[in-house]
Design a protein around this nucleic acid. Structure first.
Lengths: 224, 224
DNA sequence: CAGGCCACTGAACGCATGTTTAGCATGTTG
DNA sequence: CAACATGCTAAACATGCGTTCAGTGGCCTG
């Protein structure tokens, strides 16, 4: 038996611990933590199951550590996006589609990033991390609504808190049901093509309601 | 095989098999099938684990059977609601809030029914049953949009398929994120009080978009 | 009454899981 | 050099899982 110190083809500057964490992240995002075994994580990271528990004390501890890591990265993204001035950046190379959160995030992440999947899993999980994440997103949604209202683009409505919540969950819905939407529409709603198709329609509703003139994105005749 | 479709009232005239099925349904809806053990189902039904697999051949078979059962009941509800004429019934004792699907269903089910939870789980699961359910819901959403358009209440928009999909997922979002919304809003969005608070705001957006006059141009008959 | 079916139980089986343990190199340190 | 810490593996451990098996008692039929 050889003492294999370096069998990897690509030079990987990550520590073994980080590799395990990243593989756990990827697998947790794909199938959820409960459906992933320590042995699968170990195999994916190219190490023995014992080492996983050696670096992280237990699987559950690994899970919470990945949670923290993901939330930290997420918070970093969030701060990066809200850096300019205090309002949310809605402009960019090809923005002005919906200004939705999930859309913005996906554009600021590498294409194959497991982060969206992990956040989705967190949002749907009945955990403190999930609740905290949603609360954070809600706060962002409130700030966005405020910014839109200050810009005169939108009204705060009769119940701003509820309106912000509705905007948030409506946004997240496309994110949560992405696969199902892809199945019925025949197009990934969060791909470039999907956003190009979904965006205008959503924008039309947000602009003038369901009964606005079919094509004209102008002049809300908004009356029931 | 006897299967009497009784779920309410009276002492328990259900078959033991039906009791097991119902308890499995409840537990699956709560935690998802993978997080529920045969022993837990057996205990909940007051029988031995062996009997569970005696009546249903395996846990997986039990799961698919519960799937079928839930989808059948769901289809029954759906047909009941669309029975009058071919269009979707939007009126009722206290309707006219949003006419949303999840809302309608919740009103037509006993308060503690595990069915919504099960449907939620199905929608979020990556299974054929879940995909079929979503496809069915999408068809309903298309019909609703058609009905609304024929009634002149809404426009089909530039891309009716996308619009129907958006209306559907927006509706489902409140359903999927119910707990999280309850946490941030301090009120269950699908309770009577929650609907009374959410409905007008959503209706306002649907009526005139985000930038409509702050207070709805028309007072709808809400109830406390 | 005999015999077979039926719902049902208690105990066991085989297996996969998370975790523990003992040990092996290697590198650092006194 | 000796001693120890570190990164790591292979093997075993205990537990809980889905499932199987050998019965048992009641009910119907012949």
């Amino acid at each position: 038996m050889f003492s294999m110190l370096n069998m990897r083809s690509m030079p990987d500057d990550r520590t073994t611990r980080a590799v395990i964490r990243d593989e756990a992240l990827r697998l947790f995002a794909e199938r959820g933590p409960d459906a992933v075994t320590v042995r699968q994580i170990a195999t994916a990271a190219g190490v023995s199951p014992g080492l996983v528990v050696h670096h992280f004390r237990s699987k559950d501890n690994l899970r919470t550590e990945v949670d923290q890591y993901v939330l930290t990265v997420f918070e970093g993204l969030l701060n990066e996006l809200t850096a300019d001035g205090g309002t949310v950046a809605v402009d960019g190379p090809e923005a002005a589609t919906t200004g939705s959160l999930s859309e913005i995030f996906l554009r600021h992440l590498p294409v194959g990033s497991p982060l969206p999947g992990y956040l989705r899993m967190l949002l749907l999980s009945d955990t403190d991390a999930g609740r905290g994440l949603f609360r954070r997103l809600y706060a962002v949604s409130c700030k966005i609504l405020d910014a839109l209202a200050d810009a005169g683009v939108a009204s705060r409505g009769k119940d701003p808190q509820v309106r912000a919540a509705l905007l948030l969950v409506n946004d997240l819905s496309v994110f949560l049901l992405r696969d199902k939407l892809t199945a019925v529409l025949g197009i990934d709603p969060l791909s470039a093509a999907g956003l190009a198709r979904l965006g205008p329609e959503l924008l039309s509703i947000y602009a003038g309601g369901l009964n606005a003139a079919a094509v004209a994105p102008e002049a809300q005749g908004g009356q029931a």
